[in-house]
Write a protein that binds this DNA or RNA. Structure first.
Lengths: 214, 214
DNA sequence: TAGATTAGCTAACAACTGTACGCTAAATAA
DNA sequence: TTATTTAGCGTACAGTTGTTAGCTAATCTA
């Protein structure tokens, strides 16, 4: 299981994954990568690819899983920063943007294949985003004590807005990105203020209902 | 200019455009279409393609322009519905969703190429969305009398949320879509409520400032 | 040590791609 | 009428693709 052979195998598997990642760019989508290109970059024969993955789609799904992992690690870091003081919204947005700057191609992969031609891809990425959003909802619920439903809706909207800002950032200069961050933060704050209003309204409604009952 | 020849030419040009559109599907992206496939579907020789477009990208940009046009027409219809009574938010969301249901492949094209590998494509689609958003901002400004900046930020966020809901809807059943519409409407209402709070706050700040000045 | 397993290789395949070149026949211009 | 323009065609080429089949040599197992 951990013999010399399986170590070597794991190494070439990684080489394939890294080769695919290296070829990704603004001008090159995963869908446009060919099996032969990847093996060429990885330094193995085309036919050897099948010793590691059934096809390119399988490799791609592995990439998505790894991306999700990276994203989750990032979120943990962000929460640490928040607990040690600082605006939750600002810290989250800035952390996310930093992730994008550092992992442009991974983010591009998620962005593109989210509406790509492979149902499995789309499902995998939707799962990652849902996971991302659910953790944020838990956080919102814990901090603001808002009911689960409100927290979920807010989290979903926030994730969408932040992801979208990330997508826009990809084609922007550093200065433009800074502006974008501020705009996104304002959007999230407005959303947050709106949710708290709706929450109060629904609570008032419940109160008047229970008063009427007495 | 309007001779027999140029009429015929326009017809085959349309045939090419329609052929491309017909080949688009959940499993088939524009980027994956080949020039030969398109000409085959259009019923002309591969080499004749160049009589009409410089390359596939040029054809694609034409598709994007046409899609934007369709979208703008849709917006006009939506505004008519709103003026004849009904919730602006609900009407807008439902209209947009109807557009997606009727033009799945066009919407997929916009969605995919928005983060695709062609800079020109990305720019063209960003332009269309910005146009879309700006018209909404004008509408918000006219109806709510909110300042331009607030209206712009709100419109941007709304467009993002609605576009995103559309993207999610593509892989959903009719029942799921209905739920999604309700969720999106709630998100937009919350955002709207939040914007109005921020507006009041900034107005209060201005008032107290001018009071201090007196 | 002897036998089984297997990662990686080469060669080969049919299928496809974009595009250059030159021709034809019809529409247009003179 | 005659000359020019041009949409569409067939042929051709070099390049790429995914995948099959069978071999080699190293590693693992017993």
């Amino acid at each position: 299981m951990s013999g010399n052979r399986s170590i070597k195998k794991e190494q070439t598997r990684r080489a394939l994954i890294d080769a695919a990642l290296n070829q990704l760019s603004a001008e090159r989508s995963f869908a446009s990568l060919s099996l032969r290109e990847v093996t060429r970059e990885a330094g193995i024969a085309p036919t050897s690819f099948y010793r590691h993955f059934q096809n390119m789609e399988a490799l791609g799904l592995t990439l998505v899983d790894e991306s999700g992992l990276t994203l989750r690690q990032l979120m943990r870091q962000a929460r640490q920063r928040i607990e040690s003081g600082g605006s939750a919204i600002r810290t989250s947005v800035e952390t996310f943007m930093e992730f994008i700057s550092r992992n442009e191609n991974i983010f591009r992969l998620l962005l593109r294949e989210r509406s790509g031609t492979s149902r499995d891809f789309r499902a995998a990425i939707a799962r990652e985003i849902a996971h991302f959003s659910l953790e944020l909802a838990d956080y919102i619920e814990a901090v603001t004590r808002r009911g689960g439903e409100f927290a979920r809706i807010q989290a979903d909207a926030m994730v969408i807005l932040v992801f979208n800002a990330g997508a826009e950032a990809l084609d922007m200069t550093a200065a433009q990105r800074k502006q974008l961050v501020e705009k996104t933060i304002r959007q999230l704050r407005m959303l947050d203020a709106g949710v708290s209003i709706y929450l109060k309204r629904s609570q008032n409604r419940e109160n008047s209902r229970s008063n009427a009952g007495n």
